[in-house]
Design a binder for these strands. Structure first.
Lengths: 258, 258
DNA sequence: AAGTGGTCTAGACCACCTG
DNA sequence: AGGTGGTCTAGACCACTTA
């Protein structure tokens, strides 16, 4: 006898459903939505454990199996992490096996390419029209632009240009960035409460222009891999626009198709 | 009271497990394995329906819920497709929404880029050492090499070079390929019984050499996206090595990160 | 020993499809 | 009406972790 709006069409005023509403969802999807809202609202912070399945079942007045199905899906979406015998935890960009959950760059030799970071710049400015559109900002809104290079064995491999909404990242400065050890996305979630959930990438081959060539240590016109990433937080809200240029003589972008 | 080796460690000779065997798997994983073997053995062909959950439960002497969990996982791995009210079906590379399940190329305008095919060649030869290694062949084994161009609005966009083990693709000729309408992977599964399950891709930016430039209609040295794909069939057996070169002025490779 | 997630069962009812 | 997959429940037991 759940306290939530019941999932069956017959018991839920079907006669009021002749607008284009998506009809009622199953109970476990409603639970999923409620848990997601608690995550978004900060009730449980990254790295912390959430209540046990039995507690959640009592709280939502459903059976443990229903909670289980909701948590299962949130775990496959990488919002939660289950650990047998210990509990269920809010996923974090810390640890994440040596950092870099989103960076698909691999060394040709195999394995991930231990990278060093060199910050080029971090400044606030007004967003251009095209970037404003994809980030859901108004043209001219403040943004933070970060530029940096990633190096493998002192040779440049990645040139990143990162754009973040200024309203969400007040107080993000070059000093904060330089002082931070660990994944950049960990800094974002720990210090600014912005958690990157998923991202879309558009990949191209481009020719290096003069300034890119200089920073990457290649000739102008050399082929570079362009990776344009739009990252989303809870509720599919876009919060980062990033363009990476990769040297791929000794590295490659690895992908799996299912 | 399942007829299978029971899943619990206590009931399954734990004293024999001090070698490095992975211990016993849960029942639903054993069911998964049995279903996979039936798929591999051709008991149910692509597009056909498999027995209902109740029938499978009776056949394997387990509950419907256990079969359900096994089928669920096989469905998320794209080996099976569930259709409510109708049954569960063996996945196929036919239909697959306008073909192209593995081709991640998108038009910059948005949407998939209706492509025409032009076969350049299809011939049998001996495999080179490096290709033999990744395909699990002996150096000098026969392979089929297919070369083709994909065009959007009569302009070349993709140059494909495809290598297949000759032993699995007897009778594959340029004529067969030209006559075939529909996805190439559909031809493979329907005529040769080879179903592509998953693939790994290594992506790079490269400069076009003289002959590639000619076939792609670009200048020599122009940047092209190189997509090296290794495709696997049942049992993670590699069965295709493919190298695609993409023009990315008006198209891009789309990827999603979770 | 107690608490957590993981597996398995049995049974009920719902939603969808077909004859 | 009867079959299929989809959801939900209640209860049992197992495996892993911590104290």
């Amino acid at each position: 006898m759940p306290a939530l709006p019941v999932p069956t069409a017959s018991a839920s005023a079907p006669e009021a459903a002749h607008d284009n509403a998506p009809a009622f969802s199953p109970l476990y999807q409603q639970i999923k939505e409620l848990i997601t809202r608690s995550l978004q609202g900060g009730e449980w912070l990254p790295g912390q454990s959430i209540p046990s399945e039995m507690e959640l079942a009592a709280r939502f007045r459903v059976s443990q199996g229903t909670v289980r199905k909701a948590v299962d899906e949130l775990a496959t979406e990488n919002l939660l992490v289950r650990r047998q015998g210990k509990g269920t935890f809010v996923a974090t960009h810390a640890e994440e096996r040596t950092q870099y959950r989103f960076l698909r760059l691999m060394s040709d030799a195999g394995g991930s390419p231990g990278l060093q970071r060199r910050l080029i710049g971090c400044r606030r400015q007004r967003v251009a029209a095209d970037a404003a559109r994809v980030l859901g900002l108004k043209s001219g809104d403040p943004v933070v632009e970060i530029r940096r290079v990633l190096l493998a064995a002192d040779a440049p491999v990645v040139l990143d240009d990162i754009l973040l909404p200024g309203a969400l990242f007040k107080g993000l400065t070059a000093e904060r960035l330089s002082a931070w050890k660990g994944p950049m996305y960990r800094l974002f979630e720990a210090e600014f409460g912005v958690r990157m959930i998923r991202a879309e990438e558009k990949i191209r081959a481009v020719a290096a222009d003069a300034s890119q060539a200089r920073e990457m240590g290649v000739d102008a016109g050399a082929p570079l891999l362009s990776v344009e990433r739009l990252s989303f937080t809870y509720g599919d809200k876009p919060v980062e626009l990033r363009r990476g240029l990769y040297r791929t003589e000794h590295h490659h972008y690895r992908n799996e198709l299912n």
